[in-house]
Amino acid sequence: MSESLQPSLNSDELETLVSAVRQGETEKYEPIVRAFQQPIFRYCYRLFANRQDAEDAVQDILVKAYRSLGQYRRADNFQAWLYRIAYRHCLNVLRRRRIHRQVMKMLRPETVTAGPEQELDDRLYHPSLARALAELSPRERSLLILRAFEEKSFAELGDIMQTSPNALVKRMQRIKQKVRTSMKSKEDMPWNDSKRPMNTEV
């Protein structure tokens, strides 16, 4: 990963930059963008399974964050605050897509021909996992991605999703069970065969 694209910022540097941006030094926002664009993109990319959508979302999220900096408090964790914006934005995008599909189906049913399996992205996920993810709600999928791939703690997830960490632990157990059940029912390969390269144990 290129250092120039994703420099790290310690919390003091970050707060100094945020403070400067809030006082009108817009250009100081660029290092913040560079520091967070890749992790936010990873999250969006795994959620949408589509590069263009994810790239658009990253831009929207970072612009929204800039416009919302006035609401950011130093007592907050900046990263969690930013992920909270990303989480809400992504849920909204998924909701709008669903509404649009429902609308088009109501207006012109025969045009909605693609089933879930036809629209899955095999390039990012193994097909059986993609199907299992498709059966999760956007909130569940988001939680799984943040926990499993972004390795967020339940405390951080609680902060991002504005939910108690204990509730998220329980929710995560149910998500894992759903994914297991879905993959067992749709995949020929044995669930526990860890020697297979695409085994999807969760």
Partner: peptide
């Protein structure tokens, strides 16, 4: 779960 994802294919971006 991670094995079922082609992590190397998450591209780098610069927006």
């Amino acid at each position: 779960l991670k094995l079922a994802v082609h992590t190397s294919q998450v591209p780098e971006i610069d927006v």
